[in-house]
Amino acid sequence: MPDTSAMPVFDGHNDVLLRLFRKGAQGVEQQFLDGDGEGHLDLPRMQAGGFAGGLFAVFVPSPDPDPAGARAGRREAMSGESYDLPLPAPLSLGEAQPVALAMAGILFRIEKASGGRVKVCRTAAEIRDCMARGVLATVLHFEGAEAIDTDFRSLEVMVQAGLRSLGPVWSRPTAYGHGVPFRFPGSPDTGDGLTDAGKALVRECNRLGVMLDLSHLNEKGFWDLAELSDAPLVASHSNAHSICPTTRNLTDDQLARIRESGGLVGINYATSFLRPDGQMSADTGLDVVLRHMDHLLEKLGEDGVGLGSDFDGATIPAEIKDAAGLPNLVAAMRQAGYGETLVRKICWENWVNVLERTWGG
């Protein structure tokens, strides 16, 4: 049974589906349910830490014969006083769609095999019900829209299947827009805005009630989307550029616009987006997380800040370590003087409320 003593957390971003997909073995769904002890997430550790639900990302990796080596190389490249990693080449629809469907299938098979312990949620009411009953509330999210054709025929199908959140880009360019490179120090103003197809995608997602995710989108794309969208603006896993000046973080002007829209920013635990020196190091104290939290609360208000861990996709502070360590972050918030009402808002209420405003129920 879930640990009901832990503060529930609804999280804006994780990459466990990518981690399971890369294992390439039969039975990964049961390994997740039983607890494989790998990465940051499996059901037993999530229950132990109060991880009650979140957006589960489908991210199609760029082809690489040695993904583990590529990740190690990225860690090494992001360890200097400055860095600027080249963006991978775009993916075609034919390359991306089968992988995205396979990864989404892992989530649906987890739900089926869970015996009622996991549910793919399509409404905010379902999320609230799951959290009340101790059922893991998952939301299907696409991190990058490469698997969506520009006529949006597949978008309709995927929404019917359960897709409720979509980022037009990861960092590489798509038919819809341009992401930011991994650059430090750097501004998010790195190139062109949304394409015509990207603007049409915004309108379609608004029509279908799909949340649009601003994380990874460059600044011109951000402003294009902000001008077009009639939904709350949300960045699922981003931090404050004024504290950590990396391309992936949000400027104060962007934060002001998100606040105007009634939107939300989920704080990313990735240390390279937390630390003022931009380093990818687990030796990063929770005081740095709280610096970003304080800044975002100042700029967004108490209703505009959530959590967006990037579990299974980033190097995170050792004091958190994995999902079972979430109570350490909650304890740090309390020790910093955050009252229980604010802690509850940041941990889960703000996320569920913004999804309800976006989805209409």
Rank of each mutant, 00 (worst) to 15 (best):
G49E: 00
G50L: 15
G50P: 03
G50N: 01
G50K: 06
F51K: 02
A52S: 07
A52F: 05
G53F: 13
G54K: 06
G54M: 06
L55G: 04
F56V: 02
V58R: 02
F59L: 09
P61Y: 13
P61G: 12
S62E: 08
S62K: 03
S62C: 09
P65I: 10
P65N: 11
D66A: 13
G69D: 10
G69N: 12
R71H: 10
R74N: 14
R74P: 05
R75F: 14
R75N: 11
E76M: 10
E76L: 11
E76R: 15
E76G: 10
A77I: 09
S79N: 12
E81M: 15
E81C: 05
E81A: 10
E81G: 06
Y83H: 11
Y83W: 14
Y83D: 10
L85A: 11
L85P: 03
L85R: 06
P86Y: 13
L87C: 12
P88E: 08
A89K: 08
A89T: 06
P90S: 02
P90N: 12
L91R: 09
L91S: 03
S92G: 10
L93I: 11
G94N: 05
G94D: 12
E95M: 07
A96T: 09
A96S: 15
Q97Y: 14
Q97T: 09
P98Y: 08
P98I: 15
P98S: 02
P98F: 02
V99H: 09
V99S: 02
L101A: 14
M103H: 05
A104G: 05
G105K: 03
G105C: 13
I106Y: 00
L107E: 01
R109D: 11
I110K: 04
I110P: 05
E111K: 00
A113F: 07
A113H: 06
S114M: 15
V118T: 09
K119N: 06
K119Q: 13
V120T: 04
V120C: 10
C121E: 08
C121W: 04
C121T: 13
C121I: 15
R122M: 13
A125R: 07
A125F: 02
E126A: 08
I127G: 01
I127D: 01
R128H: 03
R128F: 02
R128L: 07
D129S: 14
D129P: 01
C130E: 01
C130A: 02
C130R: 00
M131D: 00
L136N: 03
L136E: 06
A137K: 05
A137F: 11
T138W: 14
V139Y: 03
L140V: 03
L140E: 08
H141N: 02
H141C: 06
E143M: 07
G144M: 14
G144N: 04
G144A: 07
G144K: 04
A145W: 12
A145S: 10
E146I: 05
D149C: 02
T150V: 13
D151Y: 00
E156D: 15
V157E: 04
V157L: 13
M158H: 05
M158F: 15
M158N: 13
M158G: 10
V159R: 09
L163G: 14
R164M: 14
S165H: 00
L166N: 00
G167L: 10
V169F: 06
S171P: 00
S171D: 09
R172M: 09
R172C: 04
R172Y: 03
P173A: 13
T174M: 01
A175W: 08
A175K: 12
A175N: 04
Y176M: 01
Y176G: 00
G177L: 00
G177C: 02
